[in-house]
């Protein structure tokens, strides 16, 4: 009796394992919910609001993918991941997609066996100082005390930068952004360094933001983007092209508000292909033809998502900068939909 139970369990496990080797797309469709790895809380990028609804720049990409694949942007289960658990959560299949301000690096792409399918935000490490310090460039920070989070790439970048410029600094190590901000405010350090987007958010919440400046030097490249597992290229393509659809929509002037109108009146063949009025691009991805239209209709195009969450009209007030379209001097560029 017991033996047969054991065999039954093993057989069931084998069956389940067999089913597991199906594609991520099939898994997501069967489940009816997209498991999206998100941040436990990063201002503007991904955090639950007072009602527990996840919101932010990264979160809107999860919603767009859910809209494209499942037809409903609300069918997302957000799985909060920490800096320690994020990659294991993705590798073990707990999440289908990780959109959690993760920097695309060589070793993560190759050694950890992930694919960074796009860059939805080009960030870089910067410095914030008090205006009264009288410094206008990071190169003048010789001998300064600098608040820095331990165990992050920012720490290594900082060491590299000061070494290559042959100047000295004293690190004041802190555990997280909140502590860094408090130490900086209390005068425990002359400068505070972290990703420029984080600096802007921190500055916006200081008692007198005008008393502080963010120095012009950006000392590292931090391309942040959505990550999927190696080996399921179809799923990677879906996430990548959903993202490109949002960028292309901004390029073509398609917004959340006018998408229906554009779909009716457009004469542009690429827009027609993008919105599924011509050709069968959806089928090539394994989706239906309206996938991109739904993704754009969910929260608007790339520019709208940017402005709604972190743009210049929000308290965070980030400028588009590198994240402007390539036509406006930025790096956001969508390959052609053809």
């Amino acid at each position: 009796m017991k033996k047969s139970v054991l065999f039954g369990t093993l057989a069931a496990a084998a069956l389940l394992a067999g089913a597991a080797s199906a594609t991520t797309l099939d898994d997501v469709k069967a489940r009816g919910v997209l498991n999206c790895g998100s941040n436990t809380g990063l201002t503007g990028f991904g955090a639950p609001d007072a009602n527990g609804n996840y919101q932010g720049f990264d979160v809107d990409l999860c919603k767009a993918v859910a809209a494209a694949v499942l037809g409903d942007q609300s069918k997302v289960k957000y799985i909060p991941t920490t800096g320690e658990t994020r990659f294991t959560a993705l590798a073990s299949g707990e999440v289908d997609l990780l959109v959690r301000n993760s920097t695309w690096t060589f070793s993560r792409d190759t050694d950890l066996k992930f694919d960074f399918v796009a860059v939805n935000y080009y960030d870089g490490q910067g410095f914030m100082v008090k205006k009264t310090l009288g410094v206008s460039s990071a190169k003048e920070l010789d001998g300064a005390t600098i608040c820095i989070q331990t165990g992050t790439t920012t720490e290594l970048n900082l060491a590299d930068y000061f070494k290559s410029n042959n100047i000295k600094y004293t690190p004041v190590t802190v555990a997280d952004d909140a502590e860094a901000q408090r130490q900086f405010l209390a005068g425990a350090c002359d400068a505070f360094t972290t990703d420029a987007s984080g600096l802007a958010a921190s500055r916006a919440t200081l008692p007198n933001p005008g008393d502080y400046i963010i120095l012009p030097e950006i000392i590292s490249k931090e391309p942040l983007g959505p990550v999927v597992r190696h080996g399921d290229n179809q799923w990677g393509d879906i996430v990548r092209w959903t993202y490109f659809a949002l960028v292309a929509a901004e390029e073509k002037g398609i917004t959340k508000a006018n998408i229906e109108e554009v779909a009716k009146s457009t004469q542009d063949p690429e827009v027609k292909r993008l919105l599924g009025l011509e050709g069968d691009m959806g089928k090539m991805l394994g989706l239906d033809n309206d996938w991109a239209k739904r993704a754009i209709a969910a929260n608007g195009n790339y520019g709208e998502i940017f402005e709604a969450n972190i743009g210049s009209k929000t308290p965070i007030g980030l400028a588009r900068g590198l994240n402007a379209l390539w036509t406006q001097g930025g790096l956001q560029y969508s390959p052609p939909f053809r």
Partner: peptide
């Protein structure tokens, strides 16, 4: 990644631009 009060909820609250800092 569980939202216990000391750090989990606190991080979420601080991620709100109104309470950051």
């Amino acid at each position: 990644g569980l939202q216990e009060p000391l750090r989990g909820i606190t991080t979420i609250v601080r991620a709100d631009i109104n309470w950051k800092g």
